[in-house]
Design a protein around this nucleic acid. Structure first.
Lengths: 114, 114
DNA sequence: ACAGGACATCGACGGACGTCGATGTCTGTA
DNA sequence: TACAGACATCGACGTCCGTCGATGTCCTGT
């Protein structure tokens, strides 16, 4: 709200991300913005079968089973992981669409570095 | 920690992200995991000169100047924004290295969708 | 039917987060 | 030198987050 003749800079070109788009993507980033959850997704994504059962994920961390279950729930609620119960075990797999939705933020959208 | 003969799945191939790498990138994601901060970075990155002064950024939101200043500080502390005071005004610009560090997560690392 | 294991849920606790009004600091101008 | 404006900092408030122990639910083998 500066004086017209005293502008400090050009008034921000209009190709930036919309507020709605930001509100949509931020929860995905928030779900990933934790070291444990980041490693969880990475462990599942780098698995040979692109999925992993909770028991093996538990063993990869020095955390309680309740805590790992909580983090998996957060990732699942955010739409980043799929959940598949097979018998006694539960298998989580990554949702490529969700991950690429975040990836496109940094390549094609207004956040592209170049 | 299941019985050897009773494994529920292969014990997670070893190409996943390290704990140290996760601890390093998570703060960057946490800084971006907010709608306001996401728009701030987008506004600055999409600006013609790749920078923006705080006064214009203030006008783009229905938030207090103190709140915007706080968000800019968070982004700056995370290494995502550069700060340059020129006279009365302060100009923020994106740090391409930081942004591409996050971008590489989703393209080349263990989080790549394909 | 029963026992045991895999996983989810609950309740609680300490700490971090987003926002605000008020105030401080610095810079250019009258 | 005094003033006004741009931006940062401070202190406070309510809310959300990460973690835990305890408990619940569901499945499988005996």
């Amino acid at each position: 709200m500066s004086d017209p003749g005293l502008a400090c800079c050009t008034p921000l070109s209009g190709t930036a991300m919309s507020a709605e788009q930001a509100e949509q993507v931020a929860p995905l980033l928030k779900a990933l913005a934790d070291p444990v959850r980041l490693r969880l997704v990475s462990l599942i994504a780098s698995s040979a079968t692109r999925e992993a059962c909770v028991c093996d994920l538990n063993d990869a961390f020095d955390l309680t089973q309740a805590t790992i279950s909580h983090h998996l729930k957060v990732l699942h609620s955010a739409g980043l992981l799929d959940r598949d119960k097979r018998g006694v075990w539960v298998y989580y797999s990554v949702r490529p669409e969700a991950l690429s939705a975040v990836a496109s933020l940094f390549s094609t959208s207004a956040l592209a570095p170049a």
